[in-house]
Every structure is written in structure tokens, then in C-alpha cells.
Amino acid sequence: MENLEIEGSHKNFFIPSVSFNAKTGICELSGESFLEDTVEFYKPLINWVEDYIELVHGPLALIIRLTYFNTSTSRSILDILNILKDYEESGGEVVINWHFDENDIDMEEDIDDYIIDTGLDINKIPF
């Protein structure tokens, strides 16, 4: 299975950096996410995670270091987290580390909302 790599950018729209590794199961999503077509951008990420679960069936660590995302993105993040929750419930090993600026109270609230929403153990790591 191939890795998924997308280089982020901060231009008219903000593309997050994506680095999903099929060998290690470490999936990093960082930078800022504000896209012209959110659903289109996140579709390959969601497909990759689903393929990894089906084909590799190994441990998966999602590392999020987003400093900004819009509400449209927040819906796509929920889609990914829901897939991970299903994987965990079916016996998969899932770790989620969410790094956030300790001064960004709104971001911390967002993470808490995802924890309530999904029932996942998301490790909140302030920086």
C-alpha cells in the first residue's frame, strides 16, 4: 500500500499538510485547512484510512496539528474520526494525538466536542 503525501500551502485557500504512512500507520494532518472543495480534498484521505484498515489492518496513530480549520473541514475530520471509532470497536489499535496551542481555547473546545461526539480517547497535547 502506498503512502499518502500532500504538501500544504497557505495561498488563496489553505491546504493542510498530509503524511499518511502505510508501513508505520502514523497519519499526520497539520497546518491549516480551508479549501475550495472540502469534500473533494478529504475523500482520498478517507479512502486511504479505509484501505489501510482493510488491507494492512495494523495499528493507526492519527496525529493532528491543525492551527486553523473551517467548519466545512470540521465535518470531514468527524468523518475520519468516526471511521477510527468503528475500527477501534472492531478490535483495531487506534491512537489519536491532537496538538494544539494552549492559548487557543476555541481549539481545545473543538477537541472536547470531538471526544463527546465520537467517544474516542483523544490525547490533548498543548504546546
Binding site: 472540502t38 473533494e40 467548519t71 466545512s72 470540521s74 465535518r75 476555541d106 466536542d113 463527546i116
Partner: peptide
């Protein structure tokens, strides 16, 4: 916001929670 976010993406790709987020922010 959590309730509304669970609904599918709107046709335009929005999440139907823009105004809620504005009030929260």
C-alpha cells in the same frame, strides 16, 4: 453544533454550522 455536524454535508459542501461557529467564536 455537534447535532448539526452529524448531518451530511450540504450540497455546497458546507457543514450547516457556519452561523453556530460564528456565535461560538
Amino acid at each position: 453544533k455537534r447535532e448539526q455536524r452529524k448531518l451530511p454535508h450540504s450540497q455546497k459542501g458546507g457543514a450547516n454550522i457556519g452561523l453556530i461557529q460564528v456565535a461560538l467564536t
